[in-house]
């Protein structure tokens, strides 16, 4: 079985966001990590392989630094990695990323049975790539998945919907986007880190995929980024419990008008 995990390298969730003079978000001095939801995807891919055999290929679109993220996944236990790295993809939107991934997965890396992705990345929080990729590759998809099972070539997934959950049966090949809770992500072991150094990591430019710069034009353009207006500390209510509570209720009714 060929199992693909799509990942993205993102800012650490603890990172403080700074907007530079050019209206763009600065990545200077920021710790880069594998997007947390993508870690669930990689973990599920490795577990599926451990159970049913096959190979795990981890793929990403990114710059030179993204190799570190791929190596991390190889250290977790993925077998090989592909990085699509091209200057034309710097600042690519979800459309451009899914076009590049779809091309890779329909040609050079065709023949997969399952694709795992995270449900979204924690940086831009868009979550479009899983659905766009499923459409481009004409796959069954289950989004925001918290449980996954594969038996007799049939995939079953439980996914979050608003106010509850839903269980789906999917025809393979299928795309599964992972939500927190799908599994417990392993730490790469030290021997795993040592082995990762020798695992294949292929770097491809757009030309290697047979894509032109126009093919991956972004359709969404960032005009400017700004920091949200800072919330200010409001009133501190002090006194005996009964007084404080009465005061709070009165403020919520009369001043804030929210109850």
């Amino acid at each position: 079985m060929k199992i693909v995990a799509c990942i993205k390298q993102t800012f650490d969730t603890e990172a403080k966001i700074v907007v530079g003079g050019d209206g763009q978000i600065s990545d200077e001095g920021v710790n880069l990590i594998v997007n947390p939801y993508d870690e669930y995807a990689v973990e599920e891919a490795i577990r599926t392989k451990e159970k049913d055999g096959g190979e795990v290929v981890v793929v990403t679109v990114g710059g030179d630094k993204a190799q570190e993220a791929l190596r991390y996944c190889l250290a977790m236990g993925a077998d090989r990695a592909v990085l699509i790295n091209d200057p034309a993809l710097a600042g690519a939107d979800s459309r451009a990323v899914s076009v590049a991934l779809a091309k890779l997965l329909s040609e050079k890396e065709a023949g997969f049975d399952i694709i795992f992705t995270g449900k979204e990345s924690v940086d831009d929080g868009v979550g479009q790539v899983p659905s766009r990729l499923a459409e481009k590759l004409d796959l069954a998809q289950a989004n925001v998945v918290t449980a996954f099972e594969l038996s007799d070539g049939k995939a079953t997934a439980t996914r979050e919907i608003d106010g509850g959950s839903e269980t789906l049966e999917l025809v393979l090949p299928a795309l599964i986007s992972a939500q927190k809770g799908l599994n417990e992500v392993r730490y790469p072991s030290l021997p795993g880190i040592m082995k990762a150094k020798r695992k294949p990591l292929e770097v491809l430019a757009l030309g290697d995929l047979g894509l032109s710069v126009d093919d991956v034009a972004s359709k969404v353009e960032l005009v400017a980024a700004e920091l949200p207006p800072a919330r200010k500390a409001g009133q501190r209510l002090t006194g005996e419990v009964d007084e404080v509570v009465a005061k709070l209720v009165q403020l919520l009714q009369d001043e804030a008008k929210v109850i």
């Binding site: 190596r71 991390y72 730490y187 880190i193 040592m194 990762a196 150094k197």
Partner: peptide, 15 residues
């Protein structure tokens, strides 16, 4: 080195 950085990340996460 790459492995030192990965090891640092893993050990820090684990800790």
């Amino acid at each position: 080195t790459d492995e030192e950085r990965m090891m640092l990340q893993m050990a820090r996460n684990f800790a």
